[in-house]
């Protein structure tokens, strides 16, 4: 195709969008609404998934040293644990600190105590929370760690969280796919209407000797424009809504709000929605115009 023809066809798309004002507006607003619903739902599902995934990481294995274990020995155990595979971090929570932190809890009882009754504790985080139970067993092995008195982990809570995380991933994934298909269907139908409104034009183009590619290109460009422009507007709406909700939730300083994972990079949201919109716009218009071109 000649460069002049290419510019002409791009110009044709722009002219068509401008001259079919009402139809263009209808197509564009349909894409914006459909992509906002899809983007909003997928974004929410993704944040929920992120949240569900991050929660087990908040859990630690508490390794209590035997009463009276010297600090040096505790440090040695800490080093040995750090050398184990799949360990993310080990923090020493000294008995002095624990005494200070929990002092109010003991009330008058603490006055009758002559010395700190607590022992040092190592707070262990594993890289993959799924390995928590296995790691607890290793740390509680008296032959390997004779200095350890007891090991505690939130086994039951973790199992529930893993189940919740799985549910969010599976249901969310299926919902996202269904929503994507529904959105693609709605957009494709809208583009079919715009192509249908121009069936006479397609017919005339065929009769004056236009090749299928020449007829198809401006309509496909139009479809891609509706897809990308609509998706860009939808991305803006989704990001704005997400920011408003985050700002609102942050006011409460609740543990739930505080434990939310880091926000998603806006460029990823824009890229995913605009890319998806362009693909749906391209595929929708190609499928729609193909039907009319079969009539040669």
């Amino acid at each position: 195709m000649r460069i002049s023809s290419m510019f002409f066809l791009i110009g044709e798309s722009a002219r068509s969008i401008r001259r079919n004002g009402l139809m263009s507006l209808a197509a564009l607003s349909t894409v914006v609404i459909a992509m906002t619903v899809l983007g909003g739902a997928v974004f929410s599902l993704y944040r929920l998934h992120q949240f569900a995934e991050s929660q087990p990481r908040q859990f630690e294995i508490a390794v209590f040293m035997q009463f009276g274990t010297e600090r040096e020995k505790t440090e040695d155990v800490k080093r040995r644990i750090e050398q184990l595979p799949n360990i993310e971090s080990v923090l020493l929570y000294t008995k002095e600190q624990a005494w200070r932190d929990n002092n109010p809890l003991y009330g008058k009882a603490k006055d009758s105590l002559e010395e700190n009754p607590l022992s040092d504790c190592l707070q262990v985080r594993v890289r993959d929370p799924k390995d928590t139970a296995q790691m607890s067993a290793v740390l509680g092995d008296a032959a390997r760690f004779p200095e350890v008195e007891a090991v505690r982990d939130a086994h039951d809570e973790l199992i529930k969280l893993f189940a919740f995380s799985r549910l969010v991933r599976n249901v969310g994934g299926a919902a996202a796919i269904l929503l994507f298909l529904a959105t693609a269907f709605v957009i494709q139908n809208t583009l079919r209407l715009t192509v249908h409104a121009r069936r006479k034009e397609i017919r005339i183009m065929q009769l004056v000797g236009a090749t299928p590619g020449f007829i198809k290109l401006p309509m496909v460009l139009e479809g891609v424009f509706y897809g990308t422009a609509g998706a860009a507007a939808a991305a803006g709406l989704v990001l704005l809504a997400a920011r408003q909700i985050s700002t609102y939730a942050a006011q409460f300083h609740s543990p739930l709000a505080m434990s939310l994972p880091a926000p998603v990079d806006p460029l990823i949201v824009i890229g995913a929605l605009v890319g998806g919109g362009a693909i749906v716009g391209w595929a929708g218009s190609v499928l729609s115009v193909r039907k009319f071109l079969r009539r040669i």
Binding site: S5, E201, I204, L207, V208, G209
Partner: peptide, 24 residues
């Protein structure tokens, strides 16, 4: 008649030349 309604008279006639890749 089979004219393209949203093109001017000039553009309608020029269209037959456009499809064969004629220059400006």
């Amino acid at each position: 008649f089979g004219l393209l309604p949203n093109k001017t008279v000039f553009e309608n006639v020029a269209f037959a030349l456009r499809v064969i890749g004629a220059g400006r």
